[in-house]
């Protein structure tokens, strides 16, 4: 193991930061002549798709049980997300001193071999060290240490809570929060809000009430539609400018199991702010965003293989040496 760490990060002096920023934009304006090329995209085969539809036939267990006979009923995105909210509300809450252990995988042509699997143990309230294991290697998460640490596994770590208790418990307040909280400035507000929901769902775990509120809030966002239902997935998504951002649910339990970005030529959703965004793109002579992407191509995906609450990081990972 390596025990020499650099000193803490510092900010660039504000006036210098502003000066460099201005110089950068000047440079950019002066040399705007290179041809543009689209992001490398695709790589993973996709099933045949339709764009968003009003409702999809979903196999729902009779009586709400996870096993047993099912009935096939048409469900809208709102209904699917309501069922997801209902399921989320039934989950037990962890203790503050516990960990959330997640096994997940990410796919995309930008990744070596197209696939990365990882396991994480993140502290429920952020008071304990976090651990990520990727390709057999340990990466500790310890965002703030108050003093030099004498052992190989810092005991006085302070991280952001992985289990978020700071988010609203009702759908309307959650919806407002989604619109308020995104750091992205240029895409339309409806798209920002949906992207923020995806980000939060992937990067943290919410209380049952907050997660239920989140799913209900997503169901009210413009452009969110049910994409399709198969035996493996129920998919809802929002398509904007050639790309559909999807959330995938497990059909029997309505548990969130992942997300994907998929090329989609459905242009029916034109939120306020789209025109201004597109005008900038059109200056480059492109007919429209995403025009060179083959419909149905999956750009990126993430899947939660399993997620459960545990008391501690397995002792084997805490031993010295790697």
């Amino acid at each position: 193991m390596i025990d020499l760490q650099p000193p803490a990060r510092q900010d660039m002096p504000a006036d210098r930061q502003a000066a460099w920023r201005a110089a950068l934009l000047t440079e950019m304006t002066a040399s705007r002549r290179l041809p543009v090329r689209r992001l490398a995209f695709g790589g993973l085969a996709a099933t045949a798709l339709v764009g968003g539809v009003a409702a999809a036939l979903v196999a729902v267990p009779d009586g709400g049980q996870d096993a047993g006979p099912v009935q096939v009923v048409p469900m809208s995105a709102t209904q699917i997300l309501d069922r997801a909210a209902e399921a989320a509300g039934k989950v037990a809450e962890p203790r503050p001193d516990q960990y959330v252990h997640t096994e997940s995988e990410a796919r995309g042509d930008y990744l070596p071999g197209g696939l990365v699997r990882e396991q994480t143990w993140y502290s429920v309230n952020g008071s304990r060290i976090g651990l990520k294991i990727e390709a057999g290697e340990r990466f500790w998460r310890c965002e703030a240490v108050q003093r030099p640490v004498p052992s190989k596994t810092p005991a006085d770590c302070k991280n952001q809570p992985f289990y978020r208790r700071d988010l609203p418990n009702d759908a309307k307040t959650m919806r407002d929060w989604l619109y308020r909280s995104s750091a992205v400035k240029y895409v339309p507000a409806d798209v920002r809000a949906y992207g923020q929901a995806q980000e939060v769902l992937r990067s943290s775990r919410l209380t049952p009430a907050a997660q239920a509120a989140m799913f209900k809030a997503i169901g009210t966002l413009p452009g969110v539609k049910v994409v399709r239902s198969t035996r493996q997935h129920i998919v809802v998504g929002q398509t904007w400018l050639g790309l559909r951002a999807e959330l995938l649910f497990e059909p029997r339990t309505f548990r969130l199991i992942g997300g994907r970005s998929v090329a989609d030529n459905d242009r029916s959703f034109q939120p306020e702010g789209s025109k201004e965004f597109q005008e900038t793109l059109l200056r480059g002579g492109k007919k429209r965003y995403g025009a060179d992407r083959k419909e149905g191509t999956v750009a990126t995906s993430w899947t939660i293989i399993s997620q459960r609450v545990v008391d501690a990081i397995p002792p084997a990972y805490l031993k010295d040496g790697s």
Binding site: R21, L24, L25, M28, T29, R32, V36, L39, A106, A183, V184, K185, Y186, V187, G195, Q198, E199, R202, S203, L243, A245, G259, S261, F277, T280, L281, R283, G284, K286, Y289, W302
Partner: peptide, 22 residues
């Protein structure tokens, strides 16, 4: 992971939007 955030900004910046690059 930041879904689409950088990708959206980069797409816009590459097409000449100084604000997005900023």
């Amino acid at each position: 992971y930041q879904p689409l955030a950088d990708a959206d900004l980069w797409s816009r910046a590459r097409d000449g939007d100084e604000r997005a690059f900023g």
